[in-house]
């Protein structure tokens, strides 16, 4: 089985935040929780770059290592999922995660945090696939439908790629080659090549 991965092409990302909106809207994410966010560096300066980030679905994920309830698990295809009904909202996964992926809805009794919410790669959760409960707790299960996650599916510039790691890498490699740099850059031949 392949290994599922996200890849954000920072040469293409234009900080439109469409991925954030698509994920939030399509999966009915609670207020205050973002499964995906866009980081922009050098804003307004030459060389400004943006990248869309979420759960990286790590191999040997730190969140799985620290969870005291063992409610986070990894599927064979590398997608890291969690059981919201077992989660006690202790927040250890948030502290262990290098990427700030686990998020917690606020506003429970005594100011407590609710169950952790994070990117599911649009693969639902441990509940029965396509059940109403799965949709309510985790959002859509587009992987089971054979589709890419919402964020990647709607990305207008196709900078956000998702899917089998080998295929994503192939697409990106081809892009880098075509885009190139130096003698391989777009327009180089027109400008410099003598007929």
């Amino acid at each position: 089985m392949g290994r599922m991965k996200f890849l954000c092409d920072i040469e293409r990302c234009i900080d439109c935040s469409g991925c954030v909106v698509a994920c939030k809207e399509g999966n009915h994410i609670p207020v205050g929780v973002n499964r995906r966010r866009v980081i922009t560096i050098g804003q307004g300066k030459p060389g400004e770059k943006s990248i869309s980030v979420s759960c990286m679905h790590c191999a040997d994920a730190p969140c799985i290592a620290v969870c005291p309830v063992d409610c986070i698990y990894q599927r064979d295809d590398g997608i890291v999922l969690h059981d919201k009904e077992a989660c006690i909202g202790c927040g250890y996964c948030f502290m262990a995660c290098p990427f700030g992926a686990p998020q917690f809805p606020s506003g429970q009794v005594f100011g407590a945090r609710g169950a952790m919410d994070k990117c599911t790669f649009c693969a639902g959760g441990p509940e029965e696939t396509f059940s109403a409960k799965e949709v309510r707790l985790y959002g859509q299960n587009r992987i089971a439908e054979g589709k890419v996650p919402l964020c990647a599916g709607m990305c207008a510039t196709k900078s956000l790629l998702a899917g089998d790691a080998d295929e994503v890498a192939d697409v990106y490699r081809e892009r880098v080659f075509k885009r190139g740099s130096g003698a391989n850059a777009w327009g180089w031949n027109k400008a410099y090549k003598k007929e």
Binding site: C67, P68, C87, I88, G89, C90, F110, A112
Partner: peptide, 15 residues
């Protein structure tokens, strides 16, 4: 908490 399957018991413990 993993010994008690977490969930309601763990949330109550935190309160």
């Amino acid at each position: 908490a993993s010994l008690f399957a977490g969930g309601a018991i763990g949330i109550m413990a935190r309160s």
